[in-house]
Amino acid sequence: MSSRDEIIEAVRGTLGSNRANAATVRRDADALLEELTAIRPDLLADDLVEAFIARLVTPKVAATAERIADASELPAAVARYLEARGLPTAIALQPAAVLQALDWSGFELHDRVAPDETLAVGFARWGIAETGSLVFHSDAETPILANFLPLHHLVMVRASTVLAYLDDYAAATAGQRPPRNVNIITGASGTTDIEGSLVLGAHGPRYLHVVILDESAEPRALQS
């Protein structure tokens, strides 16, 4: 007998008398999820986008954020970010259609991210207000190494896709076939492996800047 069959048989054979029928199993699982909604922590603000931003700029997440009212404002936002930090205008741009469609004149663009890339601009599918997280899906348009390699990671996310809780993302995608890779990113890469001191920029980006595309709002800058 193969190890597979032995293992399955060993656990099935000892499952015990409380093997439930399908209906009970379903009820148990649903009951578990109902409990979940009862113990969610409070958000930092009533408005989802405000709560999201408030969380992003907490020292624990250590990101910076700003709002724009139209996608066409993104290149200017990137230019401001680069200028404020004295960074070169050669940047990696994720080949997402929503980003490629913008006017990037004045920048030197490449879509292949180098191992020592300074800055990459990317697009997140969802934001999570509870934790200040960004959700990325891998596909042909959104390669994921752009999220891992650069020192500065600059991300656009639509205000309309900001969800309250992480479990809302799980619920929103329930029943769908998942993409090859989902990256949920909350702040900058960090480690406390030496004497418990927090050091940012361990293996991933050291700086994370989030640009929220709020097509219903007036533009206003927020700061860290």
């Binding site: 624990k60 934790t131 596909d139 042909a140 998942p178 989902v182 949920i184 909350t186």
Partner: peptide
């Protein structure tokens, strides 16, 4: 574990590189 509300990264992997994808 570390007293974090969430870890910096959470990755969900459901398969190898798909046709047309540039990494993975």
């Amino acid at each position: 574990a570390t007293g974090q509300a969430i870890s910096t990264y959470f990755n969900l992997i459901s398969g190898p590189r798909k046709p047309g994808e540039k990494d993975g």
